[in-house]
């Protein structure tokens, strides 16, 4: 908790006081600093609940009404809003479009327009497939390389044994003690 609060304090110190929209006085401990909510949309009036009650703008088709208007209230837009209070027949098409764009950043058609992101996703997927295939080939090669060693084949191991017997390897208790040299067979 102390770490969290210290992070928030540092974070809030980065911003000047004007950006703090509200100060939440509810604290976990009495000596915690107050949680300062940063106004990310300065100069805009909150006109709705929006996504989570925060004063925030976003473009989403499933929640079409964000909490604030997109553009700041400049004198030009204020004049337009005044004109909007009258008859809408008298507004020109340009003014209507400006009104829309002052409230919203994107239309639904623009939100849902294809971005072409899928190409990069496909490309990266293929890259990792390639990496996996190369790794598979590497391991396959390592595995088969072990079997190419001559000392792993049955005949060669038999020859090794024969040579050990011919050298009389461990004649008292070991290998050669169990070999009968007169019969040329195991005892």
């Amino acid at each position: 908790m102390t770490l969290l609060t210290s992070v928030t304090v540092r974070f809030t110190r980065l911003f000047p006081k004007e950006f703090a929209s509200s100060v939440n006085l509810i604290r976990f401990y009495s000596d915690d600093p107050p949680y300062i909510r940063i106004d990310r949309c300065p100069g805009r009036e909150q006109i709705g609940f929006g996504f989570s009650g925060e004063k925030d703008y976003y473009d989403r088709t499933d929640l079409p009404c964000p909490a604030v208007r997109y553009k700041k209230e400049t004198p030009e837009i204020k004049a337009l809003h005044e004109k909007e209070k009258g008859d809408w027949h008298k507004l020109t098409l340009e003014e209507k479009k400006k009104l829309y764009r002052s409230s919203f950043r994107l239309t639904f058609a623009e939100i849902e327009a294809p971005t072409g992101r899928y190409k990069s996703y496909f490309g990266w997927a293929m890259v990792w497939y390639a990496v996996a295939l190369w790794l598979y080939m590497l391991f396959y090669w390592c595995k088969n390389r072990g079997l190419t060693r001559p000392s792993l084949y049955y005949e060669n191991r038999q020859a090794q044994l024969q040579r050990l017997i011919a050298m009389k390897y461990e004649p008292v208790h070991g290998l050669s003690s169990k070999w009968d040299y007169e019969k040329d067979d195991w005892k």
Partner: peptide, 16 residues
Amino acid sequence: LNDYALAIRVLEVTKN
């Protein structure tokens, strides 16, 4: 409420 933009958004919502 004198909100032209919201009216257009409602039309967009119905189409969506």
